[in-house]
Design a protein around this nucleic acid. Sequence first.
DNA 1: CAATATAGTTAGAAAATCAAATCATATCAT
DNA 2: ATGATATGATTTGATTTTCTAACTATATTG
Lengths: 149, 149
Amino acid sequence: MEDLTQELFRFFNGFSSWESSVIRASDLTVWESSVIRASDLTVSEAHAIEVLGQYGQMNMKNVAMKLGVTTGTTTVTIDRLERKQYAKRELSSQDRRVYLISLTEKGLQAYEEHHQFHSELSKQVLGTLTEEESEQLLKTLQKINAEIF
Amino acid sequence: MEDLTQELFRFFNGFSSWESSVIRASDLTVWESSVIRASDLTVSEAHAIEVLGQYGQMNMKNVAMKLGVTTGTTTVTIDRLERKQYAKRELSSQDRRVYLISLTEKGLQAYEEHHQFHSELSKQVLGTLTEEESEQLLKTLQKINAEIF
DNA sequence: CAATATAGTTAGAAAATCAAATCATATCAT
DNA sequence: ATGATATGATTTGATTTTCTAACTATATTG
């Protein structure tokens, strides 16, 4: 039990630093020997795109919850993404207080690009495991995600 | 493979929002019907304590890497932790450019407290799995952590 | 030993975040 | 129905967190 706690959080922290290095790295690129800014996405904007790409259209409150920030913060983030045309708001027809947020074409494209890096890590993970372990891991993660997160 | 990528990052994002809600919640407490600040730790300070508690004494650069921020940011964070007596710097005897950072008694105590919350989540995870699945998960995580993170 | 690399710090600016107040719409209890 | 309460989203103003770039000190390398 104590062991699992330790490995669980090591795993989480490992992901965490990997993820921020990827976001930062993908924001830079080298062109004719000098480093230039490749995308105009900040780290928190990239996170929001990741969440929207992963879960699809959702309201502000749910975006905020997935990001682990307040709705005030989310309003600001989505404002910027909308201004830069990565995301769009649509009024819900069910509840007129609600905005449904989704990615635009450009936003989806940015998500796909970022997602490639995820697949890379996934490949690395599979590389360390046997066929059987991989299958078991998938099942276990599905269970945990469905029941806890 | 695509499935695993999806579950892996859902898992990671689930952890992420859980973790930020826990850090925020543990920073507040209710006393005589009003919410007051219980600890003087901010979110980024709590993260640093978590890393130092998890990995033990380490230099600034490694702390920065684990936190996924620059060394400049880390200097500021450790400055504050040192001022509040949660952490301390020691000059390395091997390399005089290097500071080794570690938790003080007070820092360790804060780490232990935070760690309790981790155990709670761990317990929840175990609750959704069979005995066998739990053992397999532990082994798999150990493998991944050792080889990738 | 000079040139280059690395660890850490500092300074100033920009980005991210929060809490609280506010607005508009929904829901609930009577 | 309607007044009271709850909820989703935004705004405001302040604080916190972070970055980049320049800098210092020490190590390493050709």
